[in-house]
Design a protein around this nucleic acid. Structure first.
Lengths: 227, 227
DNA sequence: GAGTTTCCTGACCCGCCGGTCAGCAAAGCG
DNA sequence: CGCTTTGCTGACCGGCGGGTCAGGAAACTC
């Protein structure tokens, strides 16, 4: 009669793996330390995973699943929001649309917060032999984002004079930097505030809005200065 | 009479080191391979550097120097541009200012292009024991950027209602993603186009500009949809 | 309680590689 | 050319750690 595997072993090993990967990087993380952290042995690790790299692969695949789930839910929620706001007065629709979208962004940021160790690990895994897996992961996210942007541009929601790939990369970059910020925090930040800031920067840009009290001369010239 | 060191040895070793670091990551890069790539021996490597980590540190410090030099030159060039555009008609000043700034951005992007291997290395060095050095490097860049943003906000060039740290992080994120793009390219991209695209996204945001032909209703609702 | 099967353990093996060092030779002066 | 000093070489050493495996024990059925 076969002995059933400890149902928690695999999860514990994965949790320990990502913690050690985040702390030491994949290459320097030791299987012995991972197993010990999980309360198991090296042999147990190798029962569940073919190799360290295998554990890393599963960690990434799970994270992809999380992000794709969020993307699907967000898409559907945006559609429902759009339907709800039809017929509403443009001003109210705009404000409610913005807040609604920010609320959805908060969910994504929350998922990033809960997976901030994974973000750290992925950060430090851009060289061989991890590169193919991480490149594929990034490209998958990028493709999702590019599709989104192109769709929004086609329906007039985003300016259509910019290359969707460039836009997607800019958006990706902003989220990634905010993801980095999470790595260094002990407590959950104000994700609502982050969502509004990110959305404002991405939608409206960094220039002062029209009607600003700065002298037109100073504004016209310094306005084109950069970061 | 002391034998002078080969004047090219250190440079050759650093070039080889960054190439191998970019390819394999610091931890998996082998000193034997680095030395061989430089046309020298392991012993020669250890004559010039205390350790692999030491070579990495010098690589990062040189890159900081490059970026700081560019930041200083850019600051000075912007000041000169500002003086030149004083008294000019606002419309012309704005357009000329934008193009002038893009030209300066091209120089920064060019520096990133020439150091794209370093960008790759830094990408993959976020775990211990490299973390302190890389975090310090990033924080230094971030501080420069935050200072810039705060200054621009104070003089009305950038909208002042956003946290300068958040703005700096967003800008940093965008440049970083475009830096990533460079890693995968064989030939220099159209940096002028990149500069304009980045500047447009950061200054004006992703929403369609006023006067767009999309129906107001569709625009008002879908306008608040996101990435 | 006995028997069977599988899970888990942790000692072990082997290859790898960072860093060392004895010795060779290049550089340059007198 | 001889001598001195230092740069450079590459064999060597020792520690490390990925992965293996023989054996113990847990799980479960009869």
């Amino acid at each position: 009669m076969p002995r059933p595997a400890d149902p928690h072993a695999r999860e514990a090993l994965l949790r320990a793996a990502r913690s050690e990967f985040a702390r030491q990087g994949i290459d320097r993380a030791r299987v012995g330390d991972i197993a010990q952290k999980a309360g198991l042995s090296k042999g147990a690790f190798y029962l569940h995973f073919a190799s360290k790299q295998d554990a890393f692969r599963e960690m990434v695949q799970r994270f992809i699943g999380v992000l794709e789930e969020h993307a699907a839910r967000r898409k559907e929620a945006l559609r429902r929001l759009q339907d709800e706001l039809q017929g509403a007065e443009p001003g109210r629709a705009r404000a409610a649309g913005f807040e609604g979208e920010c609320a959805l962004d908060v969910e994504v940021l929350d998922a990033l917060w809960r997976n901030r160790e994974v973000l750290s690990v992925l950060d430090g895994a851009s060289a061989e032999p991890h590169r193919p897996l991480v490149s594929a992961f990034r490209q998958r996210l990028r493709d999702m984002l590019i599709g989104d942007v192109a769709e929004r541009q086609a329906e007039g929601g985003l300016r259509a004079d910019l290359d969707p790939e460039a836009v997607a990369d800019a958006v990706f970059g902003v989220y990634e930097t905010f993801g980095h910020r999470m790595a260094g925090l002990r407590e959950k930040p104000d994700l609502g505030g982050w969502a509004r800031t990110i959305r404002t920067i991405l939608y409206e840009g960094l220039l002062p809005p029209p009607g600003c009290t700065v002298p037109a001369h100073a504004q016209d010239v310094s306005r084109r200065r950069g970061d």
